[in-house]
Simulated scan of single mutants.
Amino acid sequence: NTIVVMASSSKRAALSSAYFYARSEHMSKRAIYHQLISKYGDGFSKHAASYAVRHLHGISWNRNALRSAHFYRHNEHMSKRAIYYQLISSYGDMFTRSQARYAVHHL
């Protein structure tokens, strides 16, 4: 038996946006959360954004980091070292150190 939990419309909308950012923009979980709560972004409540990032399933964060790394390598012509720091920066992509290492290693 599957238990279906009914989420509020705000939570469902935040989750929908979170999936877009994860699958289409290849963002990190932390960057998605910040995008969702930003008044310059989606403007969701912290509660709705937390719900959304907790319920993202089937996302490979390593793959997202690698896709971002490829973009920086081919479009910005950045070194592997610069890419690593861009990926982990709180002003950049906000991937974990492990995810950034994976991405740089697989470039």
Rank of each mutant, 00 (worst) to 15 (best):
S16T: 07
S16Y: 14
A18N: 05
Y19R: 00
Y19C: 10
F20N: 06
F20T: 12
A22Q: 04
A22K: 02
A22F: 00
R23N: 15
R23L: 14
S24C: 11
S24I: 02
S24A: 03
S24P: 00
E25D: 10
E25F: 08
H26E: 01
M27H: 04
M27I: 04
M27W: 02
S28W: 07
S28Q: 03
S28L: 11
S28T: 04
K29E: 02
K29L: 04
R30C: 02
R30Q: 12
R30L: 04
A31Y: 08
A31R: 14
A31K: 14
Y33T: 04
Y33A: 04
Y33H: 11
H34F: 03
H34E: 09
L36A: 12
L36E: 06
L36P: 02
I37Y: 08
I37Q: 04
I37R: 02
I37D: 11
S38P: 00
K39H: 14
K39A: 13
Y40K: 15
Y40S: 14
D42A: 09
D42S: 01
G43Y: 01
G43R: 03
F44P: 05
K46G: 06
K46H: 11
H47N: 13
H47W: 10
A48G: 03
A48D: 14
A49Y: 00
S50E: 15
S50M: 10
Y51L: 06
A52M: 08
V53L: 13
R54E: 06
H55P: 04
H55I: 02
H55V: 02
L56R: 11
L56I: 14
H57Q: 08
H57C: 08
G58W: 07
I59F: 06
I59T: 14
S60Q: 13
W61C: 11
N62Y: 10
N62P: 05
R63F: 12
N64G: 11
A65N: 05
